[in-house]
């Protein structure tokens, strides 16, 4: 299984609000980031959470965000960042 996004590519976290269990924190939804790592395919925890087998597998990425892009009132230096692991079905291509 290959990942759709490459390291260095810009992405945006989807701003969906599905009901039930998911692994994408609210504060990252709708936020732009950059792929910094391809972690590979994993069983889908959002399905396993309901006792399902977790298939199809989902490709997982490490995505980097600028803190000032997450919080309009961030009061630290512009270079501060945050990374999180986000599954491919939660990502759209960025600009």
């Amino acid at each position: 299984m290959e990942g759709r996004y490459q390291v260095g590519e810009r992405v945006v976290v989807r701003s969906d609000t599905p009901k039930g269990y998911c692994r994408t924190p609210f504060y990252l939804r709708g936020r732009p980031g950059v792929v910094t790592g391809q972690l590979g395919p994993f069983l889908d925890p959002e399905k396993m959470g309901y006792g399902l087998p977790g298939l199809p597998k989902r490709f997982l990425y490490t995505v980097r965000f600028g803190q000032s892009g997450l919080w309009s009132d961030y009061d630290g230096p512009a270079g501060d960042t945050l990374i999180a692991d986000i599954f491919e079905h939660w990502l759209d291509p960025g600009e």
Binding site: R23, P25, F42, P45, Q67, G79, D80, T81, A84, D85
Partner: peptide
């Protein structure tokens, strides 16, 4: 949201030219 304030409470003060990279361990 305020990693530097939290770090200061641990007596960990880092200069502004050090990038603080928060790592949210969200998945696998």
């Amino acid at each position: 949201k305020e990693p530097r304030a939290v770090l200061a409470e641990f007596n960990t003060d880092l200069p502004e030219d050090v990038e603080i990279r928060v790592v949210d361990s969200t998945a696998e």
